[in-house]
């Protein structure tokens, strides 16, 4: 999520666990075990029945994030197992610290090897990251002026590595909220409504992947992507145009197809319409020259 300060990025991320499917008892015990071994269970709460939300500060060390110590202990990514890991102010994080996230993001586990022993911790989490569009935070904001010079912006954005950005499926802009939305009496879409949409899309996925090891659109293999994400002619032209125009990587190409598949699932549509594809392409903001 990219947006100026105070636009609600943290607020949005914090509410992410409320629209994810409920933990099943097995997942809940897995997560509780991790909290139990580090003694983080609160009194009167012997079981974690909600998905965890972890937001480590950006001064965190490698060992704090992925786990470590001479007798390896779990880190923040394991504490976020089956939940959400939120990295606020992404460019402020130590670059090396972010690079260690790559393997757990792909595998869902992290293995820490020390001279004495090697330990594997579960770390299957959803990563949400937030950053400002520039050091002062107001680039592109219609109401405030940005005072950053192009080299400053370049330095700021270059702190996050391309390979990490490439692994993030959806990039969005979170603009500042206009007054009329804040004061209006109408409350926003509630978690219950959003969850209903999520659940219906998940149901379609579980029938699609019945019998295979894949469970979600996001972990489709390349072959499955080709099988399930067929495009019509119009869609193919659209994707071709966006790929050449935005200079997308092969990984981004597959990610767009998977995202488009999910959007189509949400509307219970069998085929991926150009409209769905368009939305998915729009979720690759950071691939554009404008932002990097």
């Amino acid at each position: 999520m990219i947006g100026p300060p105070g636009s609600g990025k943290t607020m949005l991320a914090k509410r992410m666990p409320t629209i994810l499917p409920d933990l099943n008892p097995g997942e809940s015990i897995e997560t509780t075990r991790i909290y139990s071994t580090v003694g983080r269970l609160k009194p009167g709460q012997p079981l974690l029945a909600t998905r965890p939300f972890r937001a480590p500060h950006h001064t965190i060390s490698n060992a704090g994030l992925v786990g470590g110590g001479s007798v390896p202990g779990p880190g923040e990514i394991s504490l976020a197992h089956n939940g959400v890991l939120f990295l606020d102010e992404l460019p402020e994080f130590n670059r090396q610290t972010l690079e260690v996230l790559r393997q757990p993001l792909e595998d869902g586990t992290v293995t820490i090897s020390r001279a004495l022993s090697s330990t594997t911790f579960p770390a299957n989490f959803m990563l949400i990251a937030a950053l400002n569009p520039c050091p002062c935070g107001y680039r592109g904001d219609p109401r405030r002026n940005c005072h950053c010079t192009p080299p400053q912006i370049e330095r700021y954005m270059s702190k996050i590595s391309g390979p990490l950005i490439d692994r993030i499926d959806i990039h969005i802009e979170v603009p500042s909220v206009p007054f009329r939305d804040l004061s209006g009496g109408k409350p926003g879409t509630s978690s219950a409504e959003m969850r209903e949409q999520v659940m219906s899309a998940r149901r379609i996925q579980s029938t699609r992947f019945a019998g295979s090891r894949t469970r979600h659109n996001a972990d489709m293999t390349h072959r499955q992507t080709r099988q399930f994400c067929r495009l019509d002619d119009e869609g193919r032209n659209l994707l071709k145009a966006s790929m050449t125009e935005l200079g997308l990587s092969a990984r981004a190409h597959d990610k767009i197809l998977r995202t488009a598949r999910t959007i189509a699932d949400q509307e219970a549509s069998d085929a991926i319409e150009p409209m769905h594809l368009n939305e998915a392409v729009n979720y690759r903001m950071l691939d554009r020259d404008l932002w990097t």
Binding site: S7, G8, M11, L12, K14, R15, P17, T18, I19, D22, L23, Q45, L47, L48, A49, T50, V174, V177, P178, D181, L182, G184, P187, G188, T189, S190, S191, A192, M194
Partner: peptide
């Protein structure tokens, strides 16, 4: 314990 204290309806706009 499976209840969350907050809800997406708290977020205006966006």
């Amino acid at each position: 314990l499976a209840v969350y204290d907050f809800d997406f309806s708290d977020v205006r706009g966006q």
